[in-house]
Design a protein around this nucleic acid. Structure first.
Lengths: 120, 120
DNA sequence: TCACCATATTACTACATAGCGATAAAGCAA
DNA sequence: TTGCTTTATCGCTATGTAGTAATATGGTGA
């Protein structure tokens, strides 16, 4: 592989690369889509189950699933009448957990700051 | 820390948590913002340097920087007339590198599929 | 003080998309 | 075939935001 000696000095990314990376992050930038992924992390679900579990409308869920499929994060297969959905890229879990624990840290440090900041 | 025995069974996230995570990813879902972060990974830069290096307009860069600051990813300090910008959350680098290498994998496997798929 | 410089903000246009209701498409049952 | 079920798609409205030009803000030097 092309590993340099050190930590790699943060390469310049081409406009195309930036565009592609941005579109991946964009797929993750919507609460409903994150909710769908969060549900799918527990295992495969049909579209109908996702509709019920997410509380969003059927058309909306279908559209969001199309986005996630387009980003290569969710896969589907037909099973009778239903469409079974599953996470097709495990990176999603890592990314979300990373973001999640980072948020928790921030929250906790802010909470700590608030409680030690209690002047009158 | 609160690590369970196994891999943690993918907790249910609250609507607020989903909203917060989504907004972080949203900050990363724009090519210009990724470009700014990419430049800042090489070290601190003034707004003017970012304008020049990114090729975007001054007002636009300023607005994107405000988004990144709002997401806690970039910090700034005044230094004379200039505003010096720097990455304030190292998670950004990890996230981008993760996404980047994932993309590279996909590209390479697609390229490989294409070359081995060369029937007449 | 005034003039200048770097940056932020405002006002605006253009475009993308989230959400919804209605409808289409596709597979199953009778 | 008809009717039912599940999902995808269409048409639409409302909202968000990227980009730009113009202006405002605030620090610097004369």
């Amino acid at each position: 592989m092309s590993r340099k000696s050190k930590t790699e000095p943060a390469k310049e990314l081409s406009p195309l690369a930036l565009q592609l990376i941005a579109s991946r992050f964009k797929a993750l930038s919507e609460p409903v889509r994150l909710r769908l992924l969060n549900i799918l992390m527990q295992g495969e679900r049909t579209v109908g189950q996702l509709v019920e579990a997410s509380g969003s409308g059927q058309a909306n869920v279908s559209k969001h699933l199309a986005v996630l499929r387009g980003a290569g994060m969710v896969g589907t297969r037909k099973e009778g009448l239903s469409t079974v959905c599953f996470i097709s890229d495990e990176i999603v879990k890592d990314l979300c957990e990373m973001m999640c624990s980072r948020l928790r840290e921030e929250m906790e440090s802010k909470a700590a700051a608030l409680s030690s900041d209690q002047k009158d």
